[in-house]
């Protein structure tokens, strides 16, 4: 199982804060997981293919080719704006 989290505008637009998916061939990298989730519907495709979208794997900022394994936590979110 992979735990997927969404934050801020991404969470709001998707209407989803978290979900879990079974680890499979379609979830082997952050990019693959994003592509799989983007097939949900038009809205998810639009939000998840934004070139500003960032990904963290196990709470570490990651590149899109980062490997994902069973049990990982993967978070998608927009550029940060704290401070």
């Amino acid at each position: 199982m992979i735990n997927v989290l969404f934050f801020a505008q991404v969470r709001e637009l998707l209407g989803t804060a978290k979900l879990s998916v079974d680890a499979s061939e379609q979830t082997q990298t952050a990019e693959a997981l994003r592509a799989m989730l983007a097939t949900t519907d038009e809205k998810w495709a639009k939000v998840l293919t934004s070139d500003k979208l960032l990904v963290a794997v196990n709470q570490t900022m990651s590149q899109w080719d980062a490997p994902i394994k069973d049990g990982d936590e993967v978070a998608f979110f927009p550029p940060v704006t704290g401070g």
Binding site: A8, Q9, E12, M61, F77, V80, T81, G82, G83
Partner: peptide
């Protein structure tokens, strides 16, 4: 902190709420 820490600002004003864009 402003560019690395995962915080996001949602502003409220007369026009309603909007997410702050990264600068």
């Amino acid at each position: 902190l402003k560019t690395k820490a995962p915080f996001w600002k949602l502003e409220a004003g007369a026009q309603g709420q909007s997410w702050v864009e990264a600068k």
